[in-house]
Design a protein around this nucleic acid. Structure first.
Lengths: 336, 336
DNA sequence: AATATGCAGGCGAACGTTCGCACGAACGTT
DNA sequence: AACGTTCGTGCGAACGTTCGCCTGCATATT
């Protein structure tokens, strides 16, 4: 490592004090045209770049945003991580920040505390937020800046960005109803999932609005896995002719793929005899047989908004919208 | 933000100088049993955590590892990012480091320079490495620590972790030959891809070892996309009966899925009439029709090794293996 | 002419660490 | 009894910034 070029080297070359260089570069001091130019020349000639660590130390900020994500399951992959991460990284960089990814440990709040106490981050973006999230409680109590990707308990007031799951499922349900379906099932998530309940609401509302009763047997709740999707769909397809749904909406694409398999195992042709709609628009969904109709979340925008809100908060700027709910969009393919 | 707890606060409480506290905590000084305990108590009582920024400033290290990944294409997703990232993050944390993800800009070396000059990182992990990678040239010249995930020009000497693509394709080819296939095609990548050429070598070697001639028409080179996979496979399936391959190996799962579609469009039943093997073991490959036989890369281990090598390098520790080539494993499913 | 005003720039301090060196006391050695 | 040695601590400095305040000078105002 070559010797660092510091403010002092620049100052020496420009013939001013190093503090003056600092101020000029930061626009906190107006100097004569001549001096200004000499400083700029010296900076250019030496290739000076301010040392970020020293700067952070002085201003007592890290310009880092902590982010941690839950592992879904060993043989499954976070479909949206790439998009979410890249959008946050670029938005953060534009604002002069960087992301600090750290290991996610379910329910552990220590890692957050550690990062705060050691001064490593200025704020957090939370994802995989659910009801009674201890992180939210902790960060609110410490009054430490954060923004959540996803809502939590309604009575808690904190900044978040979320996708309107109800609206997504509403679009899906309406699409199915318009296509003539009357018996529509939901392959959903457990009752303790806020995200799941949000989506369920869209389903219930649409059915009600169309004057359709929901047969409780059409509601399957379980994990967001391939296996559950398959099992649930098998059960649905084994209902009597009168009860058997003609379509289903799954709460994620993985379940939908399980559903696709269950249908195929029974010789049911998806897209013709039976319709399936997923949620997430996983990258491969378009290449399935048949290509999966699914609800796409505006992940990139969510990432951008999270960072935008967080940065405003950290810098004490006025925040336009503290709580944002973004609309998803139904991607119509052959499966429904 | 509550007032920081610093070495001074701890020292005041323990009745020693703050420098002593520092040394004791860092194990650079042996003190009397009594003093030691007083210091520890004070640390515990106050909940002292060393300020990382100040520490970094003093030791002139950031304990950060820069990492940047290429975006594949808008509608495709980096299948292995999650695994690679999480394994690097956890390995890094274990060594007292964190990852600094930053935006990838093809061919741009400025971003790397910037991070070095501003003292933000101690080293880099490079991915999407190819021939004549300007980043490698730059970092070697600056003598800045880095490790590449993937090899580059053979004459360059630098630390890397790579997956033995030749071996992977060898396993695949041999598996096909054992199953009785004689006419095996390769849906490959352009000649300027080192990764692609590595894989090609495995194919050529296995065919030769089995005494099988390769018909040049069996080698399709193009992008790693669904579309190219489909087109290439269409061409292959339209060859005359005598020339038409009975199996193909694709250089990634996305191409393999394209191949699956091409076969299906022609009424060719994959797994029975025709075999297809992919590369990557993308999360959804197991759920395709039929489930895709594919070559799985030890991504998590690669991530760990990258960080391990890099950290040793940064800390000037002896490096056991500077260049590691990990074996992939063939995951046999129904498609071949 | 004396004083106020404004401008360009310098100076000292501080942020919280780590590190080398100094120093006093206790102890063992000659 | 005088002299090294070791041990346990303290002290000062430094890392590269930013920030508040001070100062010297030129010009404008009374």
């Amino acid at each position: 490592m070559a010797t660092q070029i510091t403010l002092k080297s620049v100052a020496a070359r420009a013939g001013v004090s190093y503090q003056t260089v600092s101020k000029v570069l930061n626009g906190r001091l107006e100097v004569s045209q001549d001096t200004h130019q000499r400083i700029l020349d010296a900076v250019r000639d030496l290739g000076y770049r301010p040392n970020h660590i020293a700067r952070n130390m002085r201003v007592k900020r890290s310009f880092m945003i902590g982010y941690s994500w839950a592992r879904i399951s060993p043989d499954q992959v976070n479909q949206i991580l790439d998009q979410f991460l890249t959008s946050m990284v670029s938005e953060a960089e534009a604002a002069g920040y960087h992301l600090l990814p750290f290991q996610f440990r379910e329910g552990h709040v220590e890692d957050y505390r550690e990062l705060i106490d050691t001064g490593r981050v200025d704020g957090f973006v939370l994802s995989s937020v659910e009801y009674d999230d201890p992180r939210i409680e902790f960060l609110l109590e410490r009054n430490f800046p954060f923004v959540a990707f996803g809502r939590s308990n309604p009575q808690l007031d904190f900044p978040y960005v979320d996708v309107n799951g109800a609206d997504g499922v509403r679009q899906a349900t309406e699409h199915l109803i318009e296509s003539g379906h009357r018996r529509i099932a939901a392959v959903a998530w457990p009752l303790d999932s806020r995200v799941g309940n949000d989506r369920m609401e869209g389903y219930a509302q649409s059915m009600k609005a169309a004057g359709l009763d929901i047969n409780p047997k059409w509601i399957e709740r379980g994990e967001g896995t391939f296996e559950f999707g398959r099992e649930a769909t098998s059960r649905l397809l084994e209902l009597s002719d009168a009860e058997r749904p003609t379509a289903l909406i799954a709460w994620n694409d993985t379940q939908a793929i399980g559903a696709l398999h269950a249908a195929r195992e029974r010789g049911v042709e998806v897209g013709r005899d039976f319709s399936i709609i997923g949620f997430d628009d996983a990258p491969m969904s378009q290449y399935l047989f048949p290509p999966l109709t699914t609800i796409r979340q505006p992940i990139r925008e969510a990432g951008r908004k999270c960072v935008e809100i967080l940065v405003s908060q950290v810098e004490g700027k006025p925040i336009k919208e503290r709580q944002i709910v973004l609309p998803p969009v139904l991607i119509k393919r052959a499966s429904a």
